[in-house]
């Protein structure tokens, strides 16, 4: 058990032991979800604020439910109807929320580093729910949790992450988590979206789909991030589908016990077809279930406190 952090800002700065602490803790919280009474009083009396400056449904609901299952009070902050629209700075918004005695602020923002910025001046805990193309730590945690649960380990597994790597915070957080846990990571997709310099993160870059998929134990498919692309990085959706879409024909070339993962939202008929998404190798919905347990674990761990520890 290794954890003395007040915030969860990224995966990059976590040690392997800290990653394993989150995963072990999440296993305990997953069991709570199967009980008749699904709430526990660990965060009773605490206030959790979902500060989502960039749209999200799945992650916000998952954090909201996670906080509720821990008996915290949860406020959802909607950027569209907030004073941010009236010109208030993020710093002032966050300080106002803290002045209402928030204990944890969960932030999703289009600017990379926004959670780190808040953590520098807030006394409360800050949890990163996705910052620009930088990191999405809880997504990576739930992905490695799912792999570990299904495969019994992460170390030594071959994991292929396919799709829009360049613009993906999910890819970056996954690469950090998988590398720290000892997996071999292959990145695949159009060369414009999978630049060679990702090799510096300890990954293999492979633009040949057949080669990238052949001996994979896990395939994690990423959505094409239309909203983050200023210019066209590939000819079109049809082209992407024929080159990289995971359909029945491509599935035949994969290991029989491969895990097919996707952080959602899926674009059926683009990066994945319906047969594959709903097939027996797909763990896409289990990822959603596990996301709840992982987020409960994160909220639980950052609430733990000991004045003797040095804070990050």
């Amino acid at each position: 058990m290794t954890w003395n952090r007040r915030h969860l800002l990224d995966i990059e700065s976590l040690s392997t032991e800290e990653l394993l602490t989150v995963l072990d803790t999440a296993r305990g919280f997953k069991a709570v979800g199967n009980r008749a009474i699904k709430t526990v009083p660990a965060l009773r009396g605490k206030t959790v604020i979902n500060l989502f400056v960039e749209p999200s449904t799945r992650t916000r609901i998952s954090f909201e439910l996670a906080a509720q299952r821990l008996t915290a009070d949860v406020i959802n902050f909607n950027a569209d109807t907030s004073s941010l629209k009236k010109g208030e700075t993020l710093r002032d918004t966050a300080r106002n929320l803290e002045a209402m005695n928030a204990d944890i602020i969960i932030i999703r923002h289009s600017a990379a580093g926004a959670p780190h910025f808040l953590a520098r001046f807030l006394q409360c805990s800050v949890v990163n729910a996705g910052d620009g193309a930088h990191e999405h730590p809880t997504q990576a945690l739930l992905d490695v949790f799912t792999i570990r649960e299904k495969k019994g380990r992460v170390e030594g597994l071959k994991v292929t992450v396919m799709g829009d790597i360049l613009f993906s915070r999910v890819a970056r957080s996954n690469i950090w988590a998988l590398r720290k846990l000892g997996a071999q990571v292959t990145l695949c997709g159009p060369p414009t979206l999978v630049p060679r310099w990702f090799e510096q993160m300890g990954c293999r870059v492979c633009w040949d789909v057949t080669e990238a998929l052949r001996d994979a134990d896990v395939v994690n498919l990423l959505r094409i991030q239309h909203e983050r692309q200023r210019q066209s990085m590939f000819p079109g959706v049809g082209e992407y589908r024929s080159q990289f879409g995971l359909d029945r024909a491509r599935m035949e070339g994969l290991k029989p016990d491969v895990l097919i993962m996707h952080p959602g939202p899926i674009n059926r008929g683009v990066e994945i077809d319906a047969d594959t998404a709903d097939g027996d190798r797909s763990v896409i919905l289990e990822q959603v279930t596990n996301g709840l347990a992982v987020r409960m674990a994160v909220l639980y761990l950052v609430t733990g406190n000991d004045p003797g520890f040095v804070r990050n």
Binding site: M1, W3, G28, F29, D103, Y300, G304, D306
Partner: peptide, 17 residues
């Protein structure tokens, strides 16, 4: 560990089965 009343006064205890 999830039912203790002192979570914010100590490091979060390990959760066991």
């Amino acid at each position: 560990s999830m039912h203790r009343d002192d979570l914010s006064q100590r490091p979060a205890p390990a959760i066991r089965p």
